[in-house]
Amino acid sequence: MIKNILLAIVASYILLFAGCGSVPVTGRKQLSLVSNQEVLNLSLQQYGEFIKSAPISSDKANTALVQKVGRNIATAVETYLKNNGYADELSSYSWEFNLVKSTDVNAFCMPGGKIVVYEGILPYTQNETGLAVVLGHEVAHAVAKHANERMSNQMATQYGTAAVGAALGGTSAVTQQIAAAALGLGTQYGILLPYSRKQELEADKLGLIFMAMAGYDPSSASAFWQRMSQQGGSTPEFMSTHPSDATRITQIQKDLPEALKYYKGTPATKTNSAKTSDKWSF
């Protein structure tokens, strides 16, 4: 009995000290039991299987736009990470931006920066800045390692302290089972399973900041989400697992002043200058 209690205490300390990470920019502490490389290996395998069968868009203009905006945001984010003590994180990302031929109003990001945009969402993005809202949000999921956090939380909930050793010891059957459930691309929509409301709102906030870093006006985000909320029919998949429209737009307005600190002008005219307090510069 005493031995079991001691083991539980030790496992709890492992969870507390060895299994914690923090999200860049927001600084929020998060549970991190699974190695980043393990998550990347598992997610890349699933992404590869998906992209092989996905109907890639033949629209060259929109494909080029998705890739342009995605690269702009990814470059700005990597510059921020490098200049703010997260340089060791850069090897985690191998950015890829694909446009899929589908009327679904959808977009998703796999760990490591593999992002897919569906053609059906383009009527709501309308332009380059609107697209930056979507891609900033998706890039945020990757940078905040929300999938890793979801796997860790599920592991702690489902297996408790018994899984801690396996999770921290490298590739394990337990981790692979969790990944199949937590990272699996859904057969119906080809999208990751729902993130928590906390993670979605955090991705909204980070998305505003990331698009601003890349030279896109974050003030346009509210208009995009309003357009999304006004479409007829059933709730689009891209929004069905997200916070309510009113909650999202209200929070975006609260986060906007902070995001605007990073906004230096359009991608074409942005200068190399930045406020010292922001610790962000090219």
Rank of each mutant, 00 (worst) to 15 (best):
I5C: 09
I14R: 11
G21P: 04
K29I: 03
S32Y: 09
L33M: 06
V34T: 00
V34A: 01
V34F: 05
N36K: 07
L40R: 02
N41W: 09
L42S: 03
F50T: 03
I51H: 00
K52D: 08
S57H: 05
K60E: 09
T63E: 12
V69D: 04
I73Q: 11
I73F: 10
V77I: 14
T79K: 13
G85Y: 06
Y86R: 04
D88C: 05
V100M: 09
V100L: 11
N106K: 12
M110I: 10
P111R: 11
G112P: 00
K114N: 11
P123S: 13
P123M: 12
P123H: 12
Q126S: 13
L131A: 13
L135N: 13
E149M: 08
T161K: 07
A163L: 07
A166I: 07
T171R: 10
T171H: 10
T175G: 10
A181W: 01
A182C: 06
G184Q: 06
Q188W: 09
Y189F: 15
G190Y: 14
P194W: 04
P194Q: 12
A203D: 08
G207K: 04
G207P: 07
Y216L: 00
P218S: 00
A223R: 06
R227E: 09
M228C: 13
G233S: 13
T250W: 05
L256W: 04
G265D: 00
P267W: 07
P267I: 10
T269H: 04
D278P: 02
K279A: 12
